[in-house]
């Protein structure tokens, strides 16, 4: 074929994708019907903004955040310890960590919260002393110690720590054995190896599921309402018990759940980015674009795992 084609180009008619139009219209019609239906409901929409900023709901919001953050932070610390026990050479520590995970992951959180809250039924007093002697250092009424916060905290935290142990273990196992050997070969101590080499790399595997867990934790605090801890749902119910505006107050609570969950999601993606260094970027784009992207990332990235350069 050497002679150029003399054929004229003809107009092309693209496929119309009628199916997409049909589906889009159906979705919009259903949404419109739902919105109309909702507007017919016996609900006073104008009261909801008032509930959203009411002191009772805001107190519930703060309590929700405190409980979730406290339980998650302690669960992460405990989870790391359990994970280290699980991968240690000590058979007793290994066994203990496995049993711990099995127990606290297996029981429903609500059940654990109820068990802790009712601890006084079997142990009216909590004592710390030397067994078989009269020496007692601490002696407290169980009911004084086991407040609604403490019971909810223990239930949520212990359950989460079991999940965190598995997440951390998976993260540590994801780091290539050769990385540890290389760190050994330059004389790093076990602590340095863990802190400088293994953890920064394990973080990429650990952070996404931990973020998911924290979002679940924010919502899981709702279970604390059962024992009377005044988090968002309990706060909403407290208002509704006066004026019967159950739906309005619950929607106000729903609004705040969406806000804190969205904030947590943003924080999670930010953390993920900071641990996802260019060690994943492979070939492809041109050198200058890659350099610019790295610069942009460096400017955005907190110096969590920044190298010595």
């Amino acid at each position: 074929m050497t002679t150029p084609s003399v054929r004229e180009l003809m107009p092309q008619v693209r496929l119309r994708h009628w199916g997409r139009w049909v589906i889009a219209v159906v979705i919009l019609v259903i949404l419109g019907a739902l919105a109309y239906g909702a507007s017919q409901g016996d609900i006073s929409w104008r009261d909801i903004p008032y509930y959203i900023i009411s002191p009772i709901i805001l107190t519930g919001l703060v309590n929700t955040i405190i409980l979730a953050v406290a339980a998650q932070v302690v669960a992460v610390v405990l989870g790391v310890i359990i994970a280290l026990m699980r991968i240690s050479e000590n058979p007793v520590a290994k066994w203990f960590a496995a049993a711990y995970t099995w127990l606290f992951r297996g029981l429903p959180v609500l059940l654990q919260i109820l068990l802790w809250y009712n601890l006084a039924l079997i142990f009216p007093r909590l004592q710390l002393g030397i067994p078989f002697t009269d020496v007692v250092f601490i002696d407290l009424s169980t009911n004084a110690v086991m407040t609604t916060f403490v019971a909810a905290f223990l239930g949520l935290m212990l359950n989460e720590s079991a999940y965190m142990a598995e997440i951390v273990r998976a993260g540590l196992n994801s780091v290539d054995r050769g990385q540890i050997e290389a760190a050994q070969s330059i004389g790093e101590t076990p602590l340095q190896r863990m802190w400088r080499i293994v953890l920064p790399q394990a973080m990429r595997v650990i952070i996404p599921p931990t973020g998911n867990d924290f979002i679940n934790m924010l919502k899981g605090t709702a279970m604390a309402s059962v024992i009377g801890y005044v988090e968002l749902i309990r706060a909403a119910n407290n208002i509704a018990s006066f004026n019967l505006q159950v739906m309005e107050t619950l929607i106000a609570a729903a609004f705040w759940y969406m806000v804190i969950v969205s904030v947590a999601s943003v924080g999670q993606s930010y953390l993920e980015r900071s641990f996802d260094r260019s060690d994943r970027a492979r070939g492809g784009s041109g050198g200058s674009r890659r350099a610019r992207r790295r610069l942009a990332r460096d400017l955005m990235t907190p110096p969590l795992v920044r190298s010595q350069s």
Binding site: E181, A182, E188, R277, S307, Q308
Partner: peptide, 30 residues
Amino acid sequence: LSKQRASTGMVFQHFNLFPHLTVLGNVMEG
């Protein structure tokens, strides 16, 4: 033992560079 190892050096078949550190960071780590 780690202190003793610091006086020896090793080069591995699969390099085992630290992927989260730059080239300079890898060399400066030890």
